[in-house]
């Protein structure tokens, strides 16, 4: 069990990185991550929402969707969006500090494909509650890692002399491709023994 959980975590974090191998959460990856600090906080907010999502998806799968599988997509979206909003309100009330750090990102994240991705992939893989949470931690951590790496690289590229047509998304995509290639090196680390 412990080994399986470790595999789930490492797989989501590095080998099948959500951003660099599954292309989930590409929008903030290409658009927002310009500053290291922002990238870090966005990543943390992401992990947070993902864990809530894993919980919600598990509850829906276990208690509701066995009776009405065709409602899966709709219920995932609605339940995730409203749960995140409730949690957002709760944080705002109980911990203004935390809200200041993560708050502005929460509504942005809810409509992110990575969040729905967590719910769908965990369901497809048949994960239970604990597995789902570990998966969310790994995937969120992986996205944070990718965001932070990208932000770091983009901070550097600002001072470089880059042809005009290449500035912006085109450059980000090629940098992302190289990062993604680097992450391919993690493949096999779990089965090499």
């Amino acid at each position: 069990m412990a080994q399986e959980l470790l595999w789930i975590f490492i797989s989501a974090l590095l080998i099948n990185n959500f951003t660099l191998a599954y292309f989930l959460g590409i929008c903030p990856f290409l658009g927002v991550s310009n500053k290291l600090d922002t990238a870090m906080r966005l990543g943390l907010a992401n992990i947070f929402v993902m864990i809530i999502t894993a919980l919600a998806a598990w509850a829906l799968n276990t208690f509701v969707l066995i009776y009405a599988p065709y409602l899966r997509l709709i219920s995932f979206i609605i339940v995730i969006a409203s749960t995140v909003q409730f949690v957002e309100m709760a944080i705002k009330k109980w911990s203004p500090e935390l809200f200041k750090a993560l708050g502005i990102f929460l509504p942005l994240i809810t409509t992110n494909c990575a969040i729905l991705g967590i719910a769908l992939f965990a369901t497809n893989k048949g994960y239970g509650l604990i597995e789902g949470i570990v998966y969310a931690l790994g995937a969120g951590g992986g996205m944070t890692l990718a965001l932070v790496l990208m932000a770091g690289i983009r901070e550097e590229t600002r001072v470089l002399d880059i042809p005009d047509v290449m500035k912006g998304t085109a450059l980000s995509l090629i940098v992302a491709g190289i990062l993604s290639m680097a992450f391919m090196g993690f493949a096999g680390m779990f089965s090499a023994a």
């Binding site: 085109a170 450059l171 090629i174």
Partner: peptide, 25 residues
């Protein structure tokens, strides 16, 4: 083979955008 793996997706779109931008410009 890298082209059908994830990095290939980033590279292809990156280069297509480059071409598109150049033409559009």
């Amino acid at each position: 083979i890298v082209m059908i793996l994830p990095p290939g997706g980033f590279f292809t779109l990156g280069f297509l955008l480059l071409i598109f931008n150049t033409v559009a410009r």
